[in-house]
């Protein structure tokens, strides 16, 4: 079975927000909700500016799932984290816990009361029958059931945003890193996790950069 992942290549993202728009349009998300957003670091600093598109990262140890008081979250066979809006009580705990700001709530009723949580579904809908009207209404389109990948990545003009099986996505990214001479390697690999040492020397010998 596939293990679905998003990966955004900071060397390629041009902050066009095409992914944000594609997502909003495809899923007809409620007003004020933005399932995907583009964060720019060092905006305007020459040579240091980097942009990244972020949405739900479909974590393996998902904090939203861990703190939800009514247990609405579940993980599909593809490793996609989905939730059941019918059971959501709008407490906002997933919004406190998520590192990526994925869960969002439409305001509903008095006192800033929260409605049902909405987040990126990896274009995989919800617990309703695949492709049903109820599913479309609550979660947006179920592209995965149609054999398609998330629209944000499909429509990315520079192919910075990749979505799909982790193995395929990292193969594509690894090839890019090698071809362009190392830039972007900081996102993956031994050195990022553990620092330099034997591995750093091996990497240098291998002709990388």
């Amino acid at each position: 079975m596939a293990r679905m992942k998003f990966l955004c290549d900071a060397e390629r993202c041009i902050e066009c927000n095409g992914c944000v728009t594609a997502c909003k349009n495809e899923h007809e998300v409620p007003w004020g909700i933005q399932r995907r957003r583009v964060v720019t670091i060092n905006d305007g600093v020459v040579g240091k500016e980097k942009s990244l598109s972020v949405a739900c990262m479909h974590c393996t140890d998902a904090p939203c799932m861990a703190v939800c008081p009514v247990d609405v979250f579940y993980r599909t066979e593809d490793g996609v984290v989905l939730h059941d809006k019918d059971a959501c009580i709008g407490c906002g705990y997933c919004f406190y816990a998520c590192p990526f700001g994925a869960p969002q709530f439409p305001q509903e009723g008095a006192f800033g009361q929260r409605g049902k949580m909405d987040k990126c579904t990896f274009c995989a809908g919800g617990p309703e029958a695949d492709g049903s009207d109820a599913e479309l209404e609550k979660y947006g389109r179920n592209r995965l059931a149609e054999g398609k990948l998330p629209l944000c990545a499909e429509m990315c003009s520079t192919k910075a945003l990749l979505a799909g099986d982790a193995q395929t996505v990292s193969d594509i990214f690894r090839e890019r890193v090698v071809r362009r001479g190392g830039a972007g390697a900081e996102a993956i690999g031994w050195n990022t996790a553990y620092g330099s040492g034997e591995q750093k020397r091996e990497q240098t010998r291998g002709g990388d950069k």
Partner: peptide, 28 residues
């Protein structure tokens, strides 16, 4: 630090917030 978002989602204005993990650890 040094982060900006063109179309800011109302919920979030930074790339990664670590405090959520601290909250989760204490609460759970």
């Amino acid at each position: 630090e040094h982060q900006s978002i063109t179309f800011a989602a109302p919920a979030d204005r930074m790339l990664i917030q670590s405090e959520g993990q601290t909250w989760r650890m204490w609460r759970n």
